[in-house]
Design a protein around this nucleic acid. Structure first.
Length: 877
RNA sequence: GCGUCAUUAACUCAGUUGGUUCAGAGUGUUACCUUGACAGGGUAGAAGUCACUGGUUCGAAUCCAGUAUGACGCACCA
């Protein structure tokens, strides 16, 4: 059989993915094994796969595949969320292309379009995950607006309302004029923007005097209902009790006093616009000011804006500047940097706006979520540094605005039976609402037709915070078998950017509804950045096309590349070279397999000693690495686990073991060694499988014909044995001897095919177990023991052992002397520092015993080496 | 403004209770090596004042304080 010298992922990956799917290996049903569960952070239906998804889904797949190999019942639940704002915007835009306005549609008609859109595009990202190799249980694919998920959300809302935790309030909220909806505080991103500070004169009523205010938003003067000064500000005592006249509108407003005003800032006179500023609203409430809302829902001016009616706020700002200038009341403008709230989704500048919204009281709900993460460790964050951020948010939490003025999402189950603000009931179904309304009103003739459901939908996160429960139907049926089996889930892998949006809220919901954590460990990945350290994002266009990367490097290559340099929680500077390295690694093990497969095997020859010893050593190294990997995984140091695997396979297996075992050209190999090498390769495939699932399965299945039950994906993780540390140390010593030989060959241009002799003056009592290996790898005809240094030979030393390679002629005594003198100098310096340490009484008395004895050993080693070097030197002179 | 985290080789990063020849890895780079697994390879080498300044200690990349730079989070004064 001929095997390609280059591994071609494109020929392999789809084949095995199909095979795994056909045999249902990703599917999980409850049984008596220990469950291991992950729920995917549901990507939103408008999304396409980007680097962040690639990273965190690769990590999840590594964890799931490893759990599967460890014999656990691994269940990875995939799905998507409905992303109300983003999706509604897409659907509105698509309809606009077809000449349809949302306002011309009924809610039902709009939702029909939205579902059509979702059915067409909503699954794209999940299909892309398959290319990456994600072994999700696709039969369980969930969507936050599936009927049973909707029911769970509504049930939760009603329950929280009945507990008195949800209330309706008239508040200043964050209004996104583009999406025409409110946002929660978490959805607002503050960005520094260069703006202007406008200084504007207001006339004082009944006098020719003026006062000057400073504002960043001159267009809001139409909403001014007071001027506020600090009562202690002596500059303005003459203004007390007077009234001011707003420019343009000519409205007369009171001058009020409040020490909220900062004397230092601006002019010391503050215009108060209660409808359009949170702090002004507070002032307004305190001083009983009128509230004038000057904006429409798209942030254009309404009739209070007079001749600016209909203009956008920013357009108006420009125009009003001109008018104020012309009328001479605009004194000056200054550059001013201020932080402006923008919408996370639409990037629109947020407009503070007063309106009726639904809120969830957070104060008591967060308590178990604080205790579990910060005190009991019931839920653990990796890396730990996020605990501080978490604490800060949790301890300063504000009530959550959960209503959105959108149609795409779960409609709020509040039903109005009258025009009063309090004339509503909250119920899971319209039937219940009717019953409740009859009770409230005493009107027994009331029917569903008399009720009007609240127009608003719920925040998408109000669905996804239930995710770990609702995907197993645990909200509606907490006693169902699956929920009891899979919940609490084990690990959650996500980006730190949704720590509050999602992770914290899931923890809150988990404890509120099950009294249990929703998951045990939260692994927060870093952000993927480009080489200029910019965050990769769709809007910057600096994210490489995920599928093209997979095409170019193979899914395995991309997975390995991404993981190699992504320590937990640290940002990842993405560079395509990493994928290339991943691809190179896959190719390396492929070629190792090719080499092994190409050997002729003979049953009649005996196993060479070198192979036997080499295998003993490799097995010890393998066991040692297994422990290391285990330790890395336990700390979520995925990249370290991969690097340990990488080095084991590349350095120990390929560079050492295969070179040791390799038979001479066109010679066969003994059966014992061959079988052992295959076994070692299979073990390597087992531990590499989570990182590079496709290539490992391909090699696994090519090694031998396997039944589906024997597929690698459902095979077993190698068993942990005892590590023989001595053999590893002895081999390490031998490898230094090999390295010494190579260095000399290199420096003297002795070709490898030319055999050499090696003479040893043994001072070290080193093990001779690996002499056959030294002979083979150094192409040494004979290892001879000598009592004294050899004349006319090149030399090197390992510890205090001296090695000589006789070389006819061409020995440069002077160079040899210089080399030895340098080694001597270094070793003496080293000895000095060690003996200085040991002669320090306080060190010997205070340092732990083992540290002192290590230092003693170092001193003895150095002394022995110096002695050998000096002997050698005198023999040369 | 407050807080958190970072700063180690040309690049990306490890360094896990302060103590091995502890100053590391991978990539890159330099020199040499291609009939026989792999040039996506091999062998050997070079490369760092562990940001800076002090302190604690027998001993500091590691602990403490301050400074600088950067990232992130939170709150903001119009």
């Amino acid at each position: 059989m001929s095997i390609a010298s280059k591994y071609d992922a494109s020929q392999v990956e789809d084949k095995w993915y199909r095979y795994w799917m056909e045999h249902n290996f990703f599917h999980s049903t409850p049984d008596n094994r220990e469950p291991y569960t992950i729920v995917i952070p549901p990507p939103n239906v408008t999304g396409v796969l980007h680097m962040g998804h690639m990273l965190n889904n690769t990590i999840q797949d590594v964890l799931i595949r490893r759990a599967r190999l460890l014999g656990k019942n691994a269940c990875w639940v995939p799905g998507t969320d409905h992303a109300s704002i983003a999706t509604e915007a897409k659907v509105v835009a698509k309809l606009a292309d077809q000449g349809i306005k949302k306002s011309d549609l009924t809610r039902e008609e709009f939702l029909k379009h939205a579902y059509e859109w979702k059915d067409e595009y909503g699954g794209v990202i999940l299909e892309q995950l398959k290319k990456l190799g994600a072994s999700c249980d696709w039969d369980r694919t969930a969507f936050t607006m599936d009927p049973h998920m909707n029911e769970s959300v509504i049930k939760t809302f009603v329950d929280l309302y009945n507990k008195g935790l949800i209330y309706r309030g008239y508040r200043m909220v964050n209004w996104d004029p583009e999406a025409k909806t409110t946002l929660s505080d978490e959805e607002v991103i503050h960005i520094e923007k260069q703006g202007l500070l406008y200084y504007i004169n207001y006339k004082i009523e009944g006098s020719e005097d003026t006062l000057t205010i400073a504002t960043t938003r001159p267009e809001t003067i139409f909403g001014d209902t007071a001027i506020c000064i600090n009562p202690n500000d002596e500059r303005f005592t003459h203004l007390k009790g007077k009234k001011a006249i707003v420019p343009i509108s000519g409205r007369v407003i009171p001058i009020i006093e409040d020490d909220y005003v900062d004397v230092e800032f601006g002019t010391g006179c503050l215009k108060v616009t209660p409808a359009h500023d949170e702090n002004d609203k507070v002032l307004g409430d305190k001083h009983n000011l009128e509230v004038i809302d000057i904006f429409n829902e798209d942030a254009s001016l309404n009739s209070f804006g007079l001749h600016y009616e209909g203009q956008d706020r920013f357009e108006c700002r420009k125009n009003i500047k001109t008018e104020l200038e012309e009328s001479g009341v605009l004194i000056k403008t200054e550059n001013h940097i201020n932080k402006v709230g923008t919408s996370e989704r639409t990037k629109a500048v947020i407009e503070p706006r007063l309106s009726d919204q639904w809120f969830l009281k957070m104060e008591d709900l967060v308590k178990p979520a604080i205790t579990s993460v910060l005190e009991t460790g019931d839920v653990k964050l990796f890396p730990k540094k996020f605990e501080n951020t978490y604490r800060h948010w949790m301890e300063n939490i504000r009530d959550w605005n959960i209503s959105r003025q959108l149609w795409w999402g779960q409609q709020i189950p509040a039903y109005y039976f009258g025009d009063g603000k309090e004339d509503f009931v909250v119920a899971e179904t319209i039937e219940d609402a009717v019953t409740l309304s009859r009770k409230r009103t005493g009107n027994e003739t009331l029917t569903a037709a008399d009720l009007r459901q609240d127009e608003d939908a719920l925040d998408t996160w109000f669905s996804s915070w239930l995710w770990p429960m609702s995907v197993f139907d645990g909200v509606r049926n907490p006693e169902n078998e699956e929920f009891k089996y899979y919940y609490p889930t084990n690990d959650l892998v996500t980006g730190p950017d949704i720590l509050f949006f999602w992770v914290a809220r899931m923890i809150i919901a988990g404890y509120e509804y099950t009294d249990k954590r929703p998951f045990e460990n939260v692994y927060l990945t870093g952000l993927v950045r480009d080489k200029q350290r910019r965050k990769m994002s769709k809007s910057l266009g600096n994210s490489p096309d995920a599928l093209k990367l997979i095409e170019a490097y193979g899914a395995d290559g991309v997975r390995v590349g991404l993981l190699l340099s992504s320590a937990a929680g640290n940002d990842l500077m993405f560079d395509e070279d990493l994928c290339n390295q991943g691809k190179g690694f896959v190719n390396k093990i492929w070629n190792a397999f090719r080499l092994i497969k190409g050997w002729d095997v003979s049953d009649t020859i005996k196993q060479p000693e070198s192979s036997k010893k080499g295998l003993e050593w490799y097995n010890a190294r393998f066991q040692q690495t297994l422990i290391e990997i285990e330790d890395h995984f336990s700390k979520y140091r995925i990249s370290d686990a991969l690097m340990a695997t990488y080095k084991l396979i590349w350095d120990d297996f390929c560079s050492w073991l295969l070179e040791i075992a390799k038979p001479a050209y066109q010679q066969p190999m003994d059966r014992t060694t061959y079988n052992a090498i295959i076994e070692a390769l299979e073990n390597n495939l087992r531990i590499l499988h989570p990182f590079a699932p496709f290539a490992t399965e391909e090699i696994w299945q090519t090694i031998a014909d396997r039944t589906p039950e024997e597929a690698l994906i459902i095979n077993r993780w190698p068993e942990q044995g005892v590590v023989n540390a001595q053999i590893i140390a002895d081999f390490d010593y031998a490898s230094q001897v090999v390295s010494g030989i190579r260095t000399i060959r290199k420096s003297k241009n002795i070709a490898f095919k030319d055999q050499i002799e090696l003479h040893v003056v043994s001072n070290e009592n080193a093990s001779s177990d690996f002499d056959t290996i030294i002979a083979k790898l150094g192409n040494v005809s004979e290892i001879a023991f000598a009592k004294a240094p050899l004349e006319g030979a090149l030399s090197f030393r390992v510890k205090s052992n001296e090695y000589f390679i006789p070389l006819a002629g061409a020995i440069d005594v002077e160079a040899e002397v210089a080399k030895i003198e340098e080694e001597l100098k270094y070793t003496k310096g080293f000895l000095m520092s060690v003996s200085k340490k040991l002669s320090n009484e306080r060190f010997v008395n205070n340092a732990p015993e083992n540290v002192v004895s290590i230092e003693r050993q170092k001193m003895a080693d150095a002394e022995a080496k110096i002695e050998a070097l000096e002997k050698r030197l005198s023999s040369l002179k």
